[in-house]
């Protein structure tokens, strides 16, 4: 069982994000970390490979620079190797360009399954995984909350607006998982040490052989949204509930 897991290295989310005033691209000059959403896919892939009794988890990532710290975290969790497409021309890539790059990187190694998060924490277009599936000409199951493989058949519980569907699909296939599907493991000290020597294949766009890539959209302007005026904040000293009651009364809710 060989699984390619798409992971994204993103700016630390505890620091407020900002856009470059000139290019309108997300500023990524600080340290990049593994997107929390992706740690679920990595964990699930490791478990599936374990249960299959062999195989490799390969990380697939793309970045405008050759930052590796987020990938090392996932390698420390137990992934075998990584492919990183790193090229300054990829700064500000749109979803389809991202999908083309990742699909080409996935093709470099044999795979039975491709995993990705439903959406990234910083860009959240939520379309990249299924675009990759279409480019690879494989079936996809998005919004997966439980994933199992039995006799070469992928069995997924897929979230829907009103509940969930049980979906079955032959391999190779792509699954995009929601957060919370499994509990991601913490890298052990041994894992962290081992990750330093695991192979990371770093390529640029020319090395990938996708041909020219152009984003088909441009940002026209960026502005701050109208802020909601913040209201009254009170500290509860036992009677705070009364304020809520009065507020609901003023709105004629009660």
């Amino acid at each position: 069982m060989n699984i390619a897991v798409c992971v994204k290295q993103i700016p630390d989310q505890s620091v407020p994000g900002r856009l470059d005033p000139g290019t309108h691209n997300l500023v990524r000059d600080g340290k990049l970390i593994l997107d929390d959403s992706d740690s679920y896919g990595v964990e699930m892939a490791l478990q599936l490979v374990d249960r299959a009794g062999g195989g490799e988890v390969t990380l697939i990532s793309m970045a405008p620079n050759s930052e590796l710290s987020g990938l090392r975290t996932a390698l420390a969790m137990g992934a075998s190797k990584a492919v990183l497409v790193s090229d300054p021309s990829l700064a500000g890539s749109d979803a389809l360009t991202t999908a083309k790059v990742l699909a080409a990187a996935i093709r470099r190694n044999p795979f039975d399954l491709v995993m990705a998060a439903t959406e990234s924490t910083d860009g959240y277009t939520g379309t990249v995984p299924v675009q990759i599936a279409e480019l690879l000409d494989i079936p996809s199951v998005s919004f997966a909350k439980k994933v199992e493989i039995e006799n070469g058949v992928l069995k997924v519980q897929r979230q829907t607006e009103s509940g969930y569907d049980e979906v079955e699909c032959p391999l190779p296939a792509l699954v995009s998982v929601t957060a919370g599907v499994v509990e991601p493991r913490y890298p052990s000290f041994k894992g962290i040490m081992a990750a330093k020597s695991k192979p990371v294949d770093v390529l640029d766009v020319a090395g990938l052989g996708t041909g020219p890539l152009t984003s088909g959209q441009e940002i026209v302007s960026v502005r701050d949204a109208e802020e909601r005026a913040s209201g009254t904040v009170v500290i509860d000293e036992g009677e705070g509930y009364q304020q809520v009651v009065e507020f609901l009364e003023s709105l004629k809710i009660i």
Binding site: A133, E134, D137, I138, P139, S140, V141, L154, R158, T160, S162, G163, Y164, D165, E166, V167, E168, C169, P170, A173
Partner: peptide, 12 residues
């Protein structure tokens, strides 16, 4: 191949 993923049961 895109059509090979199929719903076998729905839960509401």
């Amino acid at each position: 191949s895109a059509g090979k993923a199929k719903i076998v049961q729905s839960h509401v």
